[in-house]
Computed example of a mutant assay.
Amino acid sequence: MNLIDTKNQLTEKKKHVEKVANVENATFMNIQLHAGEEVAEHDANKEVFIIVRKGKVRFIVEGEPVDVTPDNVLHMVPTERHSLHAIEESDILVIQVKP
């Protein structure tokens, strides 16, 4: 067992991005954003699952906007171009699954 700490880092700095675990077939990232902060457009060569633990984040995926909240999960296939904008202060878990 491994308990991974992802405490709030936004009191100490602006945007926070940290790899929190790396297992054989997946990487787990924690992203924390203040309202209004953004992550520029990019893609990944892996399947990606986005879980918003707190807040509301607007993703633009291949030009299409989608709001992700604690009530849903976003799944993207490899190489889908996307960017994100925090509508509210947000805490996001990103899971990249290797093919």
Rank of each mutant, 00 (worst) to 15 (best):
90 S>A: 08
36 G>A: 08
54 K>P: 05
15 K>R: 13
61 V>Y: 04
27 T>F: 14
23 V>E: 11
71 D>I: 10
61 V>K: 08
26 A>V: 07
94 V>F: 03
35 A>P: 00
22 N>W: 07
60 I>G: 01
4 I>F: 02
65 P>Y: 09
68 V>W: 00
41 E>M: 12
55 G>E: 01
27 T>A: 12
94 V>I: 13
78 P>T: 07
65 P>D: 06
68 V>Q: 00
39 V>K: 02
46 K>L: 08
62 E>D: 13
95 I>G: 00
80 E>K: 08
41 E>V: 11
63 G>E: 05
43 D>A: 14
96 Q>M: 15
2 N>C: 13
53 R>D: 11
67 D>V: 14
64 E>C: 11
78 P>Y: 07
70 P>Q: 10
14 K>D: 02
4 I>Y: 04
47 E>V: 02
52 V>G: 02
98 K>Q: 12
40 A>N: 09
7 K>L: 11
92 I>Q: 00
41 E>S: 13
44 A>V: 14
19 K>E: 04
73 V>L: 09
41 E>P: 07
49 F>E: 05
38 E>N: 09
22 N>R: 05
4 I>D: 01
32 Q>F: 01
84 L>R: 02
1 M>S: 10
22 N>P: 09
82 H>T: 05
70 P>S: 09
94 V>A: 05
69 T>P: 09
28 F>H: 10
98 K>C: 07
88 E>T: 05
32 Q>E: 03
45 N>A: 15
97 V>R: 02
62 E>T: 12
79 T>V: 10
57 V>I: 15
51 I>M: 15
23 V>R: 09
27 T>E: 08
43 D>Y: 15
54 K>S: 13
63 G>Y: 05
26 A>E: 10
83 S>L: 10
57 V>P: 04
23 V>D: 14
48 V>Q: 02
84 L>V: 03
34 H>R: 12
66 V>E: 03
95 I>Y: 04
11 T>E: 15
